[in-house]
Structures are given as structure tokens and as C-alpha cells.
Design a protein around this nucleic acid. Sequence first.
DNA 1: AATGAATGAGTTTTCATTCAT
DNA 2: TATGAATGAAAACTCATTCAT
Lengths: 212, 212, 212, 212
Amino acid sequence: MTEKRRQVHASVKDIQLIEKRRSEMIRGAVQLFKQKGFHRTTTREIAKASGFSIGTMYEYIRTKEDVLYLVCDSIYDQVKERLQQIDFEQGTLESLQLGITYYFRVMDEMQDEVLVMHQEVKSLSKDVLPYVLKKEVEMVSMMETLIQRCVDRGVLEMDEKKVHVLAQNIFNQGQMWGFRRWMIQKSFTLDEYINLQTDLLFAGINGYKTSN
Amino acid sequence: MTEKRRQVHASVKDIQLIEKRRSEMIRGAVQLFKQKGFHRTTTREIAKASGFSIGTMYEYIRTKEDVLYLVCDSIYDQVKERLQQIDFEQGTLESLQLGITYYFRVMDEMQDEVLVMHQEVKSLSKDVLPYVLKKEVEMVSMMETLIQRCVDRGVLEMDEKKVHVLAQNIFNQGQMWGFRRWMIQKSFTLDEYINLQTDLLFAGINGYKTSN
Amino acid sequence: MTEKRRQVHASVKDIQLIEKRRSEMIRGAVQLFKQKGFHRTTTREIAKASGFSIGTMYEYIRTKEDVLYLVCDSIYDQVKERLQQIDFEQGTLESLQLGITYYFRVMDEMQDEVLVMHQEVKSLSKDVLPYVLKKEVEMVSMMETLIQRCVDRGVLEMDEKKVHVLAQNIFNQGQMWGFRRWMIQKSFTLDEYINLQTDLLFAGINGYKTSN
Amino acid sequence: MTEKRRQVHASVKDIQLIEKRRSEMIRGAVQLFKQKGFHRTTTREIAKASGFSIGTMYEYIRTKEDVLYLVCDSIYDQVKERLQQIDFEQGTLESLQLGITYYFRVMDEMQDEVLVMHQEVKSLSKDVLPYVLKKEVEMVSMMETLIQRCVDRGVLEMDEKKVHVLAQNIFNQGQMWGFRRWMIQKSFTLDEYINLQTDLLFAGINGYKTSN
DNA sequence: AATGAATGAGTTTTCATTCAT
DNA sequence: TATGAATGAAAACTCATTCAT
């Protein structure tokens, strides 16, 4: 799977160093964006939080927006990487349930990052946005595959459109767990939320009932 | 229902005039926020789009954030007003379905406003935010009532927690129709989306099947 | 004679005020450019020297380069205005000599401004430069007219090319009086310089001898 | 003739290497200054254009201004070197004319360099400037000698002041051929320009007529 | 001698807000 | 009430120079 990603220009040549500095930068930036959002965070603050001078920071990026791009890109990558632990091809209801449960857990652990991304993607300029949105599509696709395999194996019966909506819904519900935490996490524990959602889901699929 | 809402200070005394000017301001601001977001929009631009001078604008607000608050507040009010058309108390599956359908349609018609709000609420400062989030809770509550009445009348059988999740899910799915339009609206027409979602929902509830 | 000149954008509407503030700005800027050149002068220094805040200054221009343009433009205008005192059409040797003498005197009085301009025009960006160079052409043309009329009246005999070179030479020598002052003004007083140059010129033209 | 020239500090000891690196630097810098001027050219760009790293460059100079000094100095040296081909002592009108012609040709061939120098000397700081201006004086002196010899031999008759002005004029006209190329070179070929200028000159001197 | 990553003072420009008219 | 000129703090970004390797 070749990743086509926007290259962010660096003046520094040492690729390993770039990798290192950028991950320091991303860590620093996420903390700040979480607290104050992208626009209210200054480049100097990012540099400081990253542990280097403003001049050094600009050796590794061209514009402030590059930081946002790197942050978003990195979060998607982490999420995707974790999701790739799932066996998408098995096609059993158990694997589907496991997959969904796992996804919700990832969303819970990365809720800060997901919150930042959810809130700030729209701040990316028109020409970088597609690169990031593509990743969102990919993640929904992973969900779709997970469901579609069950359909392929005859374990579930539904048309493509339904598979698509379902995948989107799961994806959204996972994001909302972090995004609307102030509302949702007041009412439910993670396990409750997972159970309720999978229950509804499986019931919605074909009357199948897991627990209660 | 007494509305507790943050008072936005105005130097001008004439209440009617305040109302008039502010609605002009909100109209102008929404257009701009839609295009460029809150942070990239300047107060001068808002004043210009509203049809008066920057000096005049500051007679009706105290800070730029006030504009954002007014915008968010106004959008919620509009949405709520439209949702209040629904008969929440009837407690039949038909009224539930009608209510959901109606909600999705409102979300479709107001998708620009909803997008703005969804993206910019987090830009509100910590002390205004609660006022706005409270409205979100209220809207979810309306959804909950709609479902709960069915439970009360024995038409549906489920515990409170499930009612709560369900209400949240519907609320989210409606917002996502506008927020992820670039993804969702490529795959579905509004009617398809509504049908699929209500199908899943009613199936999820108790095996009930509307169409297909 | 309609002047086609590049419009420099101002946020302020009051045209009289623009005129006033800009002339304050030009005065301040010329002093500074004279001492340190355009690049070594900061916008804050210009604002301060002009008697207003940096914010105010930017209400009357868009970029630092605009200041340079305004300065150059204004200098050319002043020079041109002064040169227009000359009667270019008379076509006598006396009027020619008077014209040249007058030109040298103007160059002497405005030597600071001319120095600035001579040194900084090249700092103008490619798209403004033509507007300014056009003015240089116009000034050489004025010189040409002055000579050409003498040819027309039969007082002088030479072809167009020679008229052209001659006009350029005079124009240059005038500028050099200010530009190479450290060299020239050590050796000559203004009157000496004028006499020597007109002598050479008139001798060069047709053996005519004014003084000595 | 002992050259008093400002020493530019180098950390490196090997004199031959210094010479080599500096001439690479000058070549690179002239190209860049020609295009963008001294101030808009960065030290990194100069280093790159010179074929070595920024660190290495700073082994051979102390400040960015040193580069400008080296460039100006080198250009003057080249021009002077070429002018030294002329036989200044012969004292005939033919040799005078040849000298002038030759000078104009040198100015034509080196017009880029001369342009750079003409535009950027003023960027030199007050303490380096004299070293460079001295060279300008020397070059004018060479012109003066060329003419003076003719006076000494009785071929021309004029006082010292006139010799001085004449030498300055020739010097300027040569520089202007390159500096105002956009204006002059539109109207004349080099040969035309040389002919016209020498014509005027010799006529100006004593009614002598070379060609036409 | 050569390299290039690190630095941070300094630069231009923006924009929310005020206040005299 | 309405206006818009004035303000200056704050922001993004640059680049000459240094110094450890």
C-alpha cells in the first residue's frame, strides 16, 4: 500500500533528525492544540513546547499550517496503525464485534488527539485538506471491509448501501465518544457505551441479539 | 421554559434596534464563518457584511467573541424552533419516524449553519461555552422525549440508557449529514439516507422493519 | 497630460487626509532612506519619523515597498514640476542655456532626493518599476525637446540621434552632480560645474563658445 | 603603486585556497546580486551558488558585507586591469580616441558587473566605502591622464578643471551605457553610441571633427 | 578545513478595540 | 447613534551568524 502524502519541506537534510524533531513538534503541538486550539496557539509556543527555538522549528516546516498538517497526519497514522491490528478478513460476527470494540477502545485512548483533529481539520487550507480527508475515507473503508466480509461469508445479509451507512455510523459514534465526552461520558462508562452500541448495531443488522 | 442566556452588552439602549442590528450581524457573520471560519474572519469584514461601520458594530457587542456567541446561539434557536413543530408527546412509532425524518430535513436545510456551529463552538471561551452546550443537551433531550414517550406508551421496550444512546446517535447522524457532506452526500440522497437510518434504527429497536 | 500612475491602496477613505498623511510619510522616509537606504530602514522607523504609529501608517499603504514607490514617485513629480518652469519651445541658444542651467540648479537643490531615488529605484519590484522609469524617460524627453526646438528653428544643426545622446548626457551629468558629490563637489562649485558643462556642450554642438 | 586595501579576515590559513574560494564566492555572488540585489540575496544562497556550505563560506569571510566588499573590489580590479592595456602616455588624439573607445567596450562587456557595483556600493558601511571609492577616483584619474598627456604634448589646449570634468563625463557615460541600458541600448548600438560620444567630445574639445 | 543544525533578535504586517467627532 | 481614523500589542516568519562535530 503506497502512501501518497504531501511533502512538508524541511531545510535540514538529515532524514532521521527530521523524523525525530517532527515527532517532538507533534507531541508539543497536540498538547497545545488540545488546550487552546490551533489558532490560539502561537508558533513560539509550539517551538517552546517542542523543546527548541523558533528558528530551529522553522528548519523543519515552512508555515504554521504545516504543523497542523503534520499533527493531523500523524494522528490518522496512529489510529490507522492501531486499527490494522484487527483481522478484517475473517468474516465472522465475533470478529466484527471484536473489531468494533477494539475501534471504540482506540478512540477512547486517543480521544485527545481525535478531538484535536476533529476540531481543526477545517483549518487546513484547501490544498492540503484532501490528503487528510483521504485518510478519513480509508478508515471508514476499513470498517466497511469488516462488515462486508461478513456479508460475503453469508453471515450477514444486506446491500452495499447499508454496509456503507453502517460503517459511517460506527466511525462517527467512535469519534463522538471523544468529541462529545462532556455529554456522553457523563452518562456511560466506555464498556456500557460499547455494549449499548454493539447491541443496537447487531439488533439493527438482522434482529440478532447479543446481550441485554 | 425560562431561557437562561448570557447577556451580551450593548451601548445602545433601543431594544428593537439592538435586535435588528444583531440579526443583520448574525446573517453577515454566518456567511463569512461558513467560508473562512471564525478566526480568519475579521471584525471589519463582519461589520461590512452586516451593512454598518466597525464603530457601529461595537455599539452592539463588546468583543469579537460576542459575535460568535450570538451566531451559535441564534443557530441553536432556529434549529430548536423548527424542531418544536414536532409533536413529541404522541408516543407512536409513526410520530417517532416522522420526528426523525423531520429532524434530518431540518439538518439538511440548515447544514451551513450547523457546520459553522459544529466547527466553531470550541472557539468560545470557557465561560460562554456552557450556555451553548446546554442547548445541545436540550436538543438531545427533545429526541429522548420523542423516544421515551413510545416507551411510556408501551410501543417500545427499552431501558433509559438505551433511550439516551439512541437519542445521541440520531442527533449525531443528523449533524454528520452536514458535517461530513463531502463523504456522505456523495453516496446518498437525503431520502436514501433518511430511509437507511430509520430502517437501521427501527430494526435495532425491536426487529421492526419499515421498508425494503 | 493625463498621468497614469499606480494606485497605492489605502484603507482610509478621506482623500485629503490620505494626501496629508502620505506627504508626511514621504518626508520622513526620504530622511531615513538618505541616511541608511531603503533596506536598512524599518517600517517602524518610517512610522515614527512620520509622526504616527505603525498601525496608522499601514492604513495608508499596503506594503513597505509602497513607501518606496511613493517616495520615488513624489521626487520625480517635484523635479518635473520644477522643470516645467522652463520654456521649452522658444528654440534659442539662450533659452537652451538657461534651461540647462536651471536643470543643474534643481538637481543641486534636490540632490538628497535625487540620490535616494537613483540608489533605490532598483529595489522596486518588477511591476512598479515601469511606472517610475516612464517618468525618467519623460524627463529626458523634456531635455530633448529643449534641444530639438533649436534644431527646428535652425539655430542648431544635428540629427535626431545626436539630440538624443545630448539630452541623455545632460540628464546624467545633472544626476551625477548629486550622486558623485563626494568626488565632483570637491573639485567644483556649482557655478563652475555649470559653466564647464555648458561650455563643453556648446563647443561640442558647433564650435560655439560661451565664455573663457 | 602599492594597493592599500581593506583586509577581509579569513579563519583559513592557506592563502591559495583563500584566493580560490573567494573567487568562487564572487562569481556566485555577482550572479545573485545582479538578479536580486545585495539585500535580497541571502548568505545561504551565496554559499550554494559558490558551491560550498554556509559554514565553509564563513571560514573565508566575517560578515555578509565582506562579500559585497569583495565583489565590488574585484569588479574594480577587473575593470582597472583591462584599462591598463591602454597606453595613457602617448598623448596623441588617436590614442585618446582609442582609449575612450576601448573604455566603452570594457564597460559594455562588463555591464552586469558594473550595474551591480553602481547599485550596491552605497550598501557598504561607512568604513569600507572609502576603499572602494578610492578605486573610482583612480579610474577617473586614468582618464584624466589620458587627456592630460594630450594637453602636455600640445595636442589639446585646456585647463586642468576642464580636463577633470571631461574625464568625469567620459567615466559617467561609460557607466550609464550599462546602467541605463533599458533606455540607451534601445536607441543605439554600441558603435553608434561610441561614435556619437567621441564626436561630441572631440567637437567639444576644440571643434575637431572625427567622422560623419 | 568543511559541514550544516541551531539560534533568536529583528522584521513586516495584521487586526481587535477605542474614542473623538 | 453612527462613523472611521488611530492605536500598538502580538503574530508569523527570516536569516546572519555560530559552533560542535
